[in-house]
Design a protein around this nucleic acid. Structure first.
Length: 489
DNA sequence: CCCATTTGACCATT
DNA sequence: AATGGTCAAATGGG
């Protein structure tokens, strides 16, 4: 009998294993949640959550890089798609032996662009430890392309890679393309990694957020620490710290500011009762805080024509549009703002992520959300009437986000033969309506029932104003105000 | 000696 | 056949 090929495929086996593991952990979690907290065993729900997330994340990464390797499998089961071995010391020898001494260099599949993201900057430094493994002259390029992999490729099975190429001199600009997420326990979680975490969502088929914050419970007040898992984690971070001595970016942040111990920490948390302070994880998990449904992707797909989508993707909010998952990204921004409330520091914000202190400046906030920020005051709005709201909703005041969403879902694009038919009078109108939603629900984090503010609609309506308007300042301030309000309740 | 970079070879993909 | 991604021997720095 012919054995099904799939069982011979290590890639597929890994995917299956990860998914099965994930399911097992989920079942364990379900059992755990059905028991009273006092009966919980040595494994916490948070730990199980992390395990589940890791399993699915691994499976997705595997599926994303699958491609042709599945076919190669038939010919050569020994290697091809999977160069990695848990046993890094004997890996090289093993590989050669398996291949009968034949050199398999360059035996790879060509990169896919999905699951990658780019960055242009004046420095190559991004806080991560990279190892260069190649350099290539690229056709029609003045400068060579350099290939890097994560230093922890073998010791921690980390698959992150990047390609760096100079695209301009004086001033120098590096173009970096990142592939894959870090699976390693890197001490240096930087703003850039945060950006990556918030923007990368590799598989378009699966909506999944990376957990941007530490999962394990950790009380900020050392007196309150009795949980064994907390101690374990502390040991773990010390271990990492000692093995990773060179840490240029880290030295820049000696501020041992414990966010939760800041002077302006609220006495109670709106999520739970008791007189302890809460980490951002607590806020992050507080569903009442994250209003509305910010997932505009499906609306964009059904309401805008491909041409309109293309335009929107290259417009003022292009960096927002690049994000696969607005909700996750904006949660991060929310948390950043929240940290500012805790530290009461106008110049920088800091919080904990993966057990490490991370510090952000307002400038970094700008980098993260890529929204315009200016140093001077901005409230200089004209008192025009919103023509677009008036035109499509019959009124310029009192239109809710829901009204716009409903309008969009009731007027999906139609295609007859070759042309897209659209309910709006122009492409511009369709895009502007979508931009209003982006501003109100994503930048301002408003809930569905809120009314659209006319003064911002008029800015969106005017392309020049919209491009020049410092959305970064406004969303930043709005979020902080909104969080302060939430804290007071 | 260890670790990182350099560089030509190798080969999948286009 | 050209191109680009990866490997690994050679090389170099600490």
């Amino acid at each position: 009998m012919k054995k099904p090929l799939v069982h011979e495929n290590p890639r597929k086996n890994r995917v299956i294993k990860e998914l099965v593991d994930g399911k097992r952990f989920a079942t364990q979690l379900q059992t755990l949640l059905q028991q009273p907290i006092a009966d919980h065993g040595p494994v916490s729900a948070d730990e199980l959550l992390l395990k589940i997330w890791r399993s699915f994340s691994e499976a997705i990464t595997e599926l994303n890089t699958w491609g042709l390797a599945f076919q190669i499998e038939e010919v050569d089961q020994a290697d091809s798609g999977d160069r990695k071995s848990k046993d890094s010391t004997s890996e090289l020898k093993k590989k050669k032996d398996k291949q009968g001494g034949k050199d398999r260099r360059g035996c790879y599949k060509r990169r896919k662009t999905s699951g990658s993201w780019m960055r242009e900057s004046a420095t190559v430094e991004d806080g991560c430890a990279w190892r260069k493994y190649g350099q290539k002259n690229i056709l029609n390029s003045k400068y060579p392309r350099c290939y890097f992999r994560c230093t922890h490729k073998y010791d921690q099975d980390c698959r992150a890679t990047k390609q760096v190429q100079i695209i301009q001199e004086n001033p120098i600009i590096y173009h970096t393309t990142y592939f894959g997420q870090h699976a390693c326990n890197s001490l240096k979680i930087t703003k850039h990694e945060m950006m990556i975490i918030s923007q990368s969502n590799h598989n378009p088929m699966v909506e999944m957020e990376s957990p941007p914050f530490e999962i394990k419970p950790k009380l900020p007040n050392s007196d309150a620490i009795h949980d064994s898992t907390v101690k374990e984690e502390d040991q773990e971070s010390n271990k990492i710290a000692s093995t990773k001595s060179k840490s240029p970016t880290n030295s820049k942040a000696p501020k041992q500011r414990r966010i939760s111990k800041g002077p302006s920490v609220p006495v109670t948390s709106p999520t739970k009762s008791g007189d302890r302070y809460y980490e951002f994880r607590d806020w992050f998990n507080c569903r009442t805080y994250w209003k509305g449904n910010h997932n505009l992707k499906s609306l964009i797909a059904t309401f805008l024509t491909p041409a309109q989508q293309e335009k929107l993707n290259n417009d003022t909010f292009r960096y927002i549009m690049v994000m696969e998952n607005f909700k996750c990204s904006m949660k991060l921004v929310h948390c950043l703002c929240l940290s500012r409330i805790f530290t009461n520091d106008r110049d920088s914000i800091s919080f904990k992520t993966f057990g490490h202190d991370v510090s952000f400046t307002l400038e970094d906030f700008h980098v993260m959300c890529s929204l315009r920020i200016t140093s001077h005051n901005v409230e200089n709005l004209s008192k025009r009437e919103s023509t677009i709201l008036k035109h499509y909703f019959g009124k310029s005041k009192g239109v809710t986000l829901k009204d716009i969403r409903d309008f969009m879902s009731q007027n999906e694009i139609q295609k007859d033969d070759v042309n897209f038919k659209h309910v709006c009078e122009s492409d511009e109108d369709a895009m502007k309506l979508m931009k209003i939603l982006v501003v109100e629900s994503i930048l301002f984090g408003k809930k569905n029932e809120s009314t659209v503010l006319e003064k911002y609609t008029t800015i969106v309506e005017d392309n020049k104003s919209c491009a020049e308007y410092p959305w970064g300042n406004v969303s930043y301030e709005k979020l902080i105000t909104s969080m302060k309000h939430a804290l007071d309740n």
